[in-house]
Design a protein around this nucleic acid. Structure first.
Lengths: 228, 228
DNA sequence: TCTAAAACATGTTATTCAGCACAAAGGTAA
DNA sequence: TTACCTTTGTGCTGAATAACATGTTTTAGA
């Protein structure tokens, strides 16, 4: 892989570096592919790499009480993940899997740590990213615990639009999730995800066609999400 | 305040610094006192200071749907807080208040940012801290959403023991929370906190004497917490 | 193309927990 | 003291939602 190609894959990481650091990074750069639904890492494993999603869609999730799965966050193209546990000096407390076929760039964490020690701007990038993620996690805790089912599902739909965007028609979500994943994202059972989605469709807030979801009344969904 | 005194207040921040940086920090050091139940900062405000709790106990909380309060985390002596939002370039998404009379050290965030740019070891301290907090937040999301009332309350009691410790008898929690705060920590109504606490007492897992709580059967509480 | 499995859909029941209402106990101030 | 407010405690009711059962549709593999 040429340096120019590496630079294009991981601009946020690349940009702050000196020429010397860039050469070092380019020498420690791997790319790996994952199939749809393939596990990327598991809870309890020892983290070794920082990962950057080059293309595809990834879920970070956690299996809780009685094996019930909760999606903690989702990763879109160009985002970094899988590094938190190493930096906290822990094993993974979450697992990651591919929603769709993915290409992921892997960089050994010791390489990252060395760069962090040499490059203050890079450190600030990680500090900012972790700070943002922690704020999101705090918001999410309250949403998931206090909002009612309709509010949680509406929030998830809007969140998916924000994260992965829409197709050419400006309203069909670009991600086709199973009802089960939608449920795990919204902290509810699969039955209730199906039911509530049907209700939204009956109220003409959305149109469902299999896994394809069109958001018709975004403002009303926002209202439902906000009032809980 | 002498440099030695400053050093004692904020060892984690102080230790990585050069002599020059220490002098700079010592010149930008304030100490402020807060009364019991006094608000330290509010949601929506613009963050200006990193805070370090010198003594006392602090809650970080968030008012959610219908003003229902959720305690997100608690701070003990020597811990840093209130810096996340500034580093994420956001306003506060949480609020902070004193459980008990507190002494807090305040350092303007621009001072911290300057030190972060100069000192890689200090950056690593914040990266590690944020990474740990994010892991805790992820775990907490699943606990609060999936565990049942008894599991959540048991977890809170054990968490309070871990965080603030116990008195000389080795089993009385050192923090005397109102039932309301205990409820907000455990994501339940005050009535249910009272009821479940009474049940634990009836089962001889704990002894309650007003706000004083003695943990008798820690292993059984751990089991209740784990199975949810 | 057939078959089996997975995903989707919907109705019913059971459980958990929030939301009262109200009373007792403790603390605080005039 | 008395009065008042806050906190604690308890019972009852109903709403929200998980769990279960069952049938249908879609998908994937042989």
């Amino acid at each position: 892989m040429t340096e120019a190609e590496v630079a294009e894959c991981i601009p946020d990481l690349w940009q702050p570096l000196t020429q010397e650091q860039r050469e070092f990074l380019a020498q420690n750069f791997m790319v790996q592919k994952y199939k749809k639904n393939e596990t990327i890492y598991n809870e309890g494993e020892t983290p070794q790499y920082l990962m950057c999603l080059l293309n595809g869609k990834v879920k970070i999730y956690k299996d809780g009480v009685g094996g019930r799965s909760q999606i903690i966050r989702v990763i879109k193209s160009q985002e970094y993940f899988a590094y938190r546990a190493y930096l906290a000096e822990e094993n993974y407390v979450t697992a990651a899997a591919a929603f769709e076929p993915c290409t992921i760039c892997l960089i050994p964490m010791p390489v990252i740590v060395r760069l962090l020690q040499e490059n203050a701007e890079l450190s600030m990038f990680f500090i900012r990213q972790l700070s943002k993620d922690l704020g999101i996690a705090d918001e999410r805790t309250v949403s998931l615990t206090q909002k009612h089912i309709r509010g949680r599902l509406a929030e998830s739909l809007l969140f998916l639009k924000d994260t992965y965007g829409v197709e050419e028609d400006q309203c069909t979500l670009s991600i086709y999730l199973s009802r089960e994943d939608l449920a795990h994202l919204s902290n509810m059972t699969t039955s209730n995800a199906i039911r509530t989605l049907s209700n939204f469709a009956a109220e003409k807030l959305i149109i469902i066609d299999g896994r394809k979801i069109k958001l018709l009344e975004e403002e009303k969904l926002k209202k439902i999400s906000k009032i809980g």
